[in-house]
Design a protein around this nucleic acid. Structure first.
Lengths: 313, 313
DNA sequence: ATCCTTTACGCCCCGCGTAACCATC
DNA sequence: GATGGTTACGCGGGGCGTAAAGGAT
């Protein structure tokens, strides 16, 4: 049994049982992959893939078990490399983060700035997507850390830690009639066309839930994944915006006025998440602490220990 | 990184940082082991072993982490092979059990007999030792299952399941004065020289505790790990024996008389234990069920799931 | 007819063994 | 000097690539 064979195996599964695609993804030849998988099956004395003639059609029951084991072994192998990077240099390495637009645009810049100053040789990779995508990327190992307000905590194989809390703000043009209203009500908001986040983004669930509770049907006339887009359309007078508070900058957004609405919508908690079974490098602990001061290395490690429950296979 | 390198690594550690011994144990050449470990260290970019000149003297901090990961990977690799044996044939394979004399001699024979009838092609290996040895053998993977009344449950990395309960019996020559005593007391027992198990064996701890509670100092004049030895000396009139009840057979031991003493000593529970992280083959589940009918596959798997807590590193 | 997998075959790397050398106790 | 580890070097197996053949849709 070779680790290569396991890599081939896992990749074939990831590519929907397409050996050619797997070979391409691994920069090797298709026959090689085919052969090694055959050898592995022979060595283990079982068939991992069901074949109809020469085409792989399904994964057998033992195959599924073997696959799960292979994945764990590969994660462990990757962790070993991480330990190397971690202890050896602390200077080289890559930190890849998946997050949503709001975090990438408003929360992360100062964090990243300090991180880069402290770890100048670490290459950074920020991948932007929906909270669900963020979670999936963390799950499949294509990024190390995921930062999002939604979705992350729905994956039991991820460790998620709360970073900070935030509230929404309502933004309007500076001359908007709502600005005179004290205090602002949901009913009043529902009287205007609304511009806010896309269905699965950045606390949108809290917004919807608040209106639902009062049986209001808000007129959401435009949604975006991007606070800047929302603000732009609000400035054009197309409606009233509901955005994350950190996305409003009085200096930069001088065409707009913002009103606190923490009394209308539930608070949101932005979380950082990572796979329970990966090895966190020193600079990843550092990054988390920069992101949220309470996430010290000691605290994160304690959480890992405490949550040690492994659902396993 | 190759699995071989990890095997070398782990073996070197097991052999007290002696590369030559590790090479010998793995049936390969010493320079090969040395080189592969060097290559692994180079690949990971860290030193695993501290060297004074050319001699390995200690394991570095990262080395310890790498070692733990390597061990987990190797266990997983072994599990993969087990899955193979398990699904493929169910016919070939080896079941290795570590246990104490009493179990091997009195409990296991009928179990083994039925097991062999059901799985004629499985090779059996019974290794006999003290409860502590049994636990260590299970821990280091040299046997699959351990069966013992003592010690097993003190290892958190082992899953231990209760098999059955049993009590001690007092055995004497047929004409012994104690036989007339109704009911038997500890004080009476303490008045005779006793012959029983070695300090760490087969419920011996319960025997000692019972005397201690009454502040009695029994005269244990001979100890053995072996019920047959005890019975032999009892038959010779050297003293009164205290043995496990299953070790007394009225037909075979016609020179002796036995008296129930469950009112004097606590009951004992014999347990079967195995490493939490190994893959149990179908016939191993079978064996456990033959050993103790309540240990069905379903029940064992449920216990595994429930205990899923993994202390990890 | 096309796509995809397997079989066949040859190159070349690399793991392993032998031998020689070297450091520590 | 004995034990034990590294370096040097040559052989051989096996992984991987190219080419070709064989099924499935």
């Amino acid at each position: 049994m070779k680790l290569q064979q396991l890599r081939y195996l896992v990749e074939v599964e990831r590519r929907g049982l397409n050996v050619s695609a797997a070979a391409e993804a691994l920069f090797t030849s298709q026959p090689g992959v085919s052969k090694q998988i055959g050898l592995l099956e022979e060595e283990l004395g079982l068939t991992i893939f069901e074949r109809s003639g020469k085409r792989l059609t399904a994964i057998t029951a033992p195959g599924r078990i073997v696959l799960a084991m292979a994945q764990r072994m590969l994660v462990e192998a990757q962790n070993m490399k991480r330990v190397g990077e971690d202890f050896a240099a602390e200077s080289s390495g890559t930190l890849s983060i998946a997050t949503t637009h709001t975090q990438a645009r408003y929360t992360l810049p100062p964090v990243i700035q300090r991180f880069v100053r402290r770890h100048p040789a670490i290459r950074l990779h920020i991948q932007q997507g929906s909270p669900l995508q963020v979670a999936e990327w963390v799950m499949d190992g294509s990024v190390d850390l995921g930062i999002a307000t939604e979705a992350l905590d729905r994956y039991p194989d991820l460790v998620t830690l709360p970073c900070f809390q935030w509230a929404h703000k309502v933004v309007t043009p500076r001359d908007h009639p709502l600005l005179a209203m004290q205090p602002l009500t949901l009913a009043a908001l529902a009287g205007y066309p609304l511009i806010t986040y896309d269905a699965t983004f950045t606390g949108r669930s809290r917004i919807d839930r608040a209106f639902e509770r009062q049986n209001l049907r808000p007129n959401v006339m435009l949604t975006a994944i991007d606070s800047d887009v929302i603000k732009t359309y609000v400035a054009l007078g197309l409606g009233v915006g509901i955005i994350a508070e950190m996305a409003f900058d009085p200096a930069r957004d001088e065409a707009l006025a913002a009103m606190p609405v923490s009394h209308l919508f539930e608070g949101n908690t932005t979380r950082v998440g990572f796979r329970r079974d990966i090895w966190l490098r020193g600079y990843e602990y550092d990054f988390m602490e920069l992101l949220a001061p309470q996430l010290t290395r000691r605290m994160v490690e304690a959480t890992l220990k405490g949550e040690g429950a492994d659902p396993g296979l």
